[in-house]
Amino acid sequence: MGKVVLVTGAARQLGGRFVRRVQRDPGVERVIAVDAVSPPHRLGSAEFVRTDIRQSAIARVLAEHAVDTVVHLAVTGGAAAGLPGGRSAVKETNVIGTMQLLGACQKSPTVRRLVVKSSTSVYGGTARDPAVFTETTQPKTLPAGGFAKDAAEVEGYVRGFARRRPDVAVCVLRFANILGPFADSALAEYFSMPVMPTVLGYDPRLQFVHEDDVMDVLRLAAGEPERGTLNSGTFNIAGDGVLLLSQCARRLGRPTVPFPLPAVTWVGQALRAVGATDFSPEQIRLLTYGRVVETTQMRETLGFRPMYTTAEAFADFARSRGGGLLPPERVGRAVGRIAELLDVDEGVER
């Protein structure tokens, strides 16, 4: 009999695409797609089970379907699709949901493989960061909040699970910023702005991974290891090379407006207030200090080589965006809000 694969986060773009992809593998017999809301896209021949991984019912799903492989893609930095509650719902899904899922996996006698989507944001972002992060690099400062903190907590729970269930192959994939024609992240929204706010005096180095490569490496991690490779452990996943933020702006044909670092925070608040983009403090740190990771383990141990370099992933994203301009009324509201904040600040200084 073939593998029974359970995929969380199936209602999101990335999860739905992986569900459709993995069911084509000859070694896979069934795919169980799980999410708290019904997906807006097709899932092929996969069986969709509507359940919230924050609830104990996920254990029943694992048992009823005799799942042997779990691919956990419900760890996200964006809004939890269809769930009310904003940031609190996202954190609960990321952290509490992961705890419930791991508890269910620990009790399951059939689970033999666990793949967890994480992020290079666990390394944080400070002026004291090393030039390149390896999988064993400890952050200079632990993430104080947002998705980076969620991802760090999730990884901590996963390490605890791996100690309790040494018979389960556990693979944690730390993805660089994911880009491609269908990217729907906060960074993709930022790159789609008609004018890109930047931090005065900084030109950060950035890395990207193409969404097609994300599908391929998830499939590799969820499958049986090739001879001479090991698909368990923690791996940085990114395309070769780096791009400066200024290079990204030029390749998009977007003007940039540099702000002093404190003012960028006000800009981010204004943009979030009008719904223009999720310009979080975490993203501001990325656009200030950048982040570059070492990918030797990805190649030599996991046995994965991305098809796209960082520059090629960005170029494919840029082609898909075309003009990429926000509606004029949203831009106008954002500019007006920024002007109000700057006027208030100047008045306080005077």
Rank of each mutant, 00 (worst) to 15 (best):
F48C: 00
V49E: 01
R50V: 00
T51G: 07
T51V: 04
T51L: 04
I53A: 12
R54E: 02
R54L: 00
Q55V: 05
S56H: 05
I58K: 02
I58H: 01
A59C: 02
R60G: 12
A63W: 09
E64A: 13
A66L: 06
D68F: 02
D68Q: 03
T69G: 10
V71S: 12
H72L: 01
L73D: 05
A74Y: 00
V75T: 09
T76S: 05
G77C: 00
G77K: 03
A80W: 14
A81L: 10
G82C: 06
R87I: 05
S88K: 15
A89Y: 03
A89W: 01
V90T: 12
K91F: 11
E92H: 04
N94E: 05
N94C: 09
V95M: 01
I96K: 03
I96A: 01
G97S: 09
G97F: 06
T98I: 04
M99R: 06
M99V: 03
L101I: 11
L101M: 12
L102P: 04
L102K: 08
G103A: 07
A104V: 08
C105Y: 10
Q106M: 08
K107W: 15
K107P: 12
T110A: 03
R112N: 02
R113H: 07
R113E: 03
V115G: 10
V116Q: 12
V116P: 08
S118W: 13
S121F: 15
S121N: 15
Y123P: 14
G124P: 12
G124F: 10
G125R: 10
G125M: 01
A127Y: 09
D129K: 08
D129V: 04
D129S: 10
A131S: 08
A131K: 07
V132R: 13
V132F: 09
T134I: 10
T134K: 10
E135G: 14
T137E: 08
Q138H: 13
P139N: 13
T141A: 07
L142H: 06
A144K: 12
G146N: 07
K149G: 10
A151I: 06
E153H: 06
E153I: 02
V154Y: 14
G156C: 05
Y157A: 15
Y157M: 14
G160H: 13
F161Y: 14
F161T: 07
F161P: 08
A162H: 15
A162D: 15
R164W: 13
R165F: 11
D167P: 11
V168E: 06
A169E: 04
A169P: 05
V170H: 14
C171G: 02
C171K: 03
V172T: 03
V172D: 04
R174G: 05
F175S: 01
F175L: 01
A176F: 14
A176T: 10
L179D: 06
L179W: 10
P181L: 04
F182V: 11
D184K: 06
S185M: 03
L187Q: 06
A188I: 00
E189V: 10
S192Y: 00
